Simulated assay, not measured.
Amino acid sequence: MTLPAFFTELRADIEALPDQEKLNLLLEFANDLPELPEHLADHLDLMEQVLECQSPVYLFAELDDEQKVHIHATAPKEAPTTRGFASILAQGVEGLGSEEFLALPDDTPFELGLTRIVSPLRLRGMVGMIARAKRQVREALAGNEG
């Protein structure tokens, strides 16, 4: 499977960097996690906790009227690598069509070359974020059919 353009470009950037700079890039993404939209900002109960993550990460994937995917996530500032990947995921899939998003490889964190800088436990959490978002998108699609 091929990665969407955002992830392909990010993988090239990561591959070109020494390990310490890779970590710095991930930390930059942590600082750029998009704010929650107004309809979710005070309603974490509408979001799903990603239990695979060691930190309390909440995620909500939704489709707009054109079936474009939007992922919203929150992660504590004290968990910068997890927060960084949540940011990568939210920014990377923003506006993708549902089918293109569902084709995103489940092992995208591994595809990005993060294995040398992120622990296996954190990688598992990242994979969990993708799995939950995909399930939510499938549920939204099924709801739109009914």
Results as ranks from 00 to 15, higher is better:
75 A>P: 08
62 E>Q: 05
5 A>I: 13
17 L>I: 09
36 L>P: 03
95 G>P: 14
34 P>F: 03
10 L>G: 04
31 N>D: 12
15 E>Q: 15
33 L>S: 14
19 D>V: 09
69 V>G: 03
30 A>S: 15
75 A>Q: 06
146 G>Q: 07
120 P>D: 04
3 L>W: 10
119 S>P: 12
30 A>Y: 07
119 S>Y: 07
39 H>N: 10
3 L>M: 13
1 M>P: 06
129 M>C: 00
35 E>I: 04
139 E>Q: 05
93 V>I: 14
144 N>S: 12
91 Q>K: 14
71 I>S: 08
141 L>G: 01
29 F>Y: 15
9 E>G: 03
112 L>D: 08
120 P>W: 06
16 A>M: 08
130 I>H: 13
33 L>Q: 14
109 P>G: 13
94 E>M: 07
97 G>V: 13
102 L>W: 15
57 V>E: 03
63 L>G: 03
11 R>A: 05
10 L>F: 05
28 E>M: 14
69 V>W: 03
110 F>D: 11
63 L>N: 02
116 R>D: 13
89 L>W: 10
70 H>F: 05
21 E>F: 11
74 T>V: 10
53 C>I: 02
30 A>W: 06
15 E>V: 10
112 L>T: 04
96 L>W: 13
46 L>K: 14
122 R>N: 02
62 E>D: 02
102 L>H: 15
89 L>A: 07
81 T>G: 01
135 R>W: 05
114 L>F: 01
144 N>H: 08
82 T>G: 09
139 E>P: 00
44 L>M: 02
3 L>D: 05
108 T>A: 09
80 P>S: 02
65 D>S: 06
72 H>F: 06
84 G>K: 13
21 E>M: 13
28 E>Q: 15
9 E>I: 04
43 H>E: 06
114 L>R: 03
2 T>D: 10
81 T>C: 04
75 A>C: 11
44 L>C: 00
133 A>W: 01
18 P>R: 10
26 L>K: 15
83 R>Y: 09
4 P>E: 06
84 G>N: 11
15 E>K: 15
54 Q>G: 12
136 Q>D: 07
89 L>Y: 09
66 E>N: 12
45 D>S: 09
126 M>F: 15
17 L>D: 06
5 A>W: 09
21 E>R: 15
109 P>K: 14
102 L>C: 15
43 H>S: 07
124 R>W: 06
140 A>N: 07
28 E>N: 14
75 A>S: 12
108 T>E: 05
18 P>Y: 10
79 A>C: 05
2 T>Q: 11
50 V>G: 00
23 L>W: 11
114 L>W: 00
127 V>F: 13
43 H>Q: 05
141 L>Q: 05
117 I>V: 15
